[in-house]
């Protein structure tokens, strides 16, 4: 499942842009690859990240993966529910399992649309 209205980073984060606010999460493909998440580490509100910078990490029983900002900006909100319920990322990666919201600074480069992202994960799967 790859929603058409989102943009994607090659590192498997998605971004939904609404005015100057970007909501960020990880894709269905990413959560499936990681397996049941046991912990989501998120930044603090007020932290700023350049595009491509590491902003947190997700862990499952057998794997850990760093999260990279698909777009630059300042953190205005984090999904606090994930602290007690990391499984929301598995259950609903594009909706209830969102990670952070950024106030966008600068234009993102090299983001993929749904078709291009689909092609990427198909090539990775082989």
């Amino acid at each position: 499942m790859i929603p058409a209205d989102l943009k994607y980073a090659k590192s498997h984060e998605w971004v939904r842009i609404d005015g100057d606010i970007a909501t960020i999460g990880i894709s269905e493909f990413a959560q499936e690859q990681l397996g049941d998440l046991t912990f989501v580490e998120l930044p603090a509100v007020g932290d700023t990240f350049e595009q491509g910078a590491e902003f947190g990490s997700v862990e499952s029983v057998k794997a850990a993966s760093e999260l990279y900002a698909p777009i630059g900006g300042e953190v205005v909100e984090i999904n606090e529910e994930l602290e007690d319920a990391p499984e929301k990322v598995n259950e609903s990666p594009y909706d209830e399992g969102w990670l952070i919201k950024l106030k966008i600074s600068g234009e993102p480069e090299g983001l993929l649309d749904a078709d291009a992202y689909k092609a990427l994960i198909e090539s990775e799967a082989h």
Binding site: T38, F39, E59, S60, V61, K62, A63, A64
Partner: peptide
């Protein structure tokens, strides 16, 4: 909590 560790 093995995701902290060197083998992962």
């Amino acid at each position: 909590l093995q995701a902290r560790e060197q083998h992962i």
